[in-house]
Design a protein around this nucleic acid. Structure first.
Ligand SMILES: [Mn+2]
Ligand SMILES: [Mn+2]
Ligand SMILES: [Zn+2]
Ligand SMILES: [Zn+2]
Lengths: 131, 131
DNA sequence: AATGAACATGAGGATCATTCTCAATAAGCC
DNA sequence: GGCTTATTGAGAATGATCCTCATGTTCATT
């Protein structure tokens, strides 16, 4: 059975405040900054566990690094993420779900899943770039 | 200027025969098996160069590993990939392009790009799984 | 065909994210 | 308070990818 620990609470609390997608390393550092010492391995384990349970979303940055975020809804959805600061907007993917299922079946594929993510530069980061 | 070398030819020839998305490591091994000794670093450099030029597509597996494939068309498109063997079908993403641009603009994001990939188990791999 | 400047290669080391090991610790139950 | 067992974390291990730089090749030019 899952036990509640100081470390898991700390990660959960931090995730509740973040609106950006952050890497495990960043989360580890943010925890340290606020005084919550949590081992890096524990951060990884906790995030993985939350991801398995669907409580956090995981995206892969261009370099393949995993980035996590607690979204406001648990149901399947998509994102518009800032490539600079990680800020994310949750989106629906109107029509994509049916399209994916139809195309998968048409080609004889089973258990078809899909990913669809938008990446851009948010207004705030675009402003900063002008300096 | 780009020079033609034995190594680059070997990578290009192999890619021309493959219909699957393969990792750099796999491509390195496949080259070795066919007798084309190419340094791993060179395989990485060549694939990166081809990717920059848009001559190969790059996808990230669930574990973040990059997988490459030469597609039949250079223009932007999407894929339905087998999670087991890497076989891929090229797809268009009807409607997604406009949708992405519209949603991005609506949220004030600039330079909005998108990814949309389908992953499933191809008919052949599904058959093998039944053993 | 010979030359040479610039480009390319590769063995091995460096990075860096992520995972593993396992002894020490702490939750939750009695 | 004790006990059982899940959890933690320091440090090592793994693995993909990139970097270094001495050496090898390409190819425009002669
Ligand atoms: Mn969807
Ligand atoms: Mn598209
Ligand atoms: Zn931003
Ligand atoms: Zn398959």
């Amino acid at each position: 059975m899952q036990r509640m620990t100081r470390q898991r609470s700390a990660v959960a609390e931090l995730l509740a405040e973040l609106v950006d997608f952050r890497s495990a390393q960043q989360i580890h550092e943010l925890l340290r900054e606020r005084g919550d010492e949590v081992g890096l391995a524990t951060v990884y384990r906790t995030l993985q566990s939350l991801a398995d349970r669907g409580e956090v979303d995981v995206l892969r940055a261009d370099d393949g690094e995993a980035r996590y975020r607690r979204c406001s809804r648990q149901e399947h959805h998509h994102h518009l993420v800032c490539r600079s600061c990680g800020t994310a907007v949750e989106l629906d993917g109107p029509g994509v779900e049916e399209w994916a299922a139809r195309v998968g079946a048409a080609h004889g594929f089973r258990d078809v899943a899909h990913t669809m993510e938008l990446v851009g530069t948010c207004a705030e980061c675009a402003r900063e770039e002008q300096d």
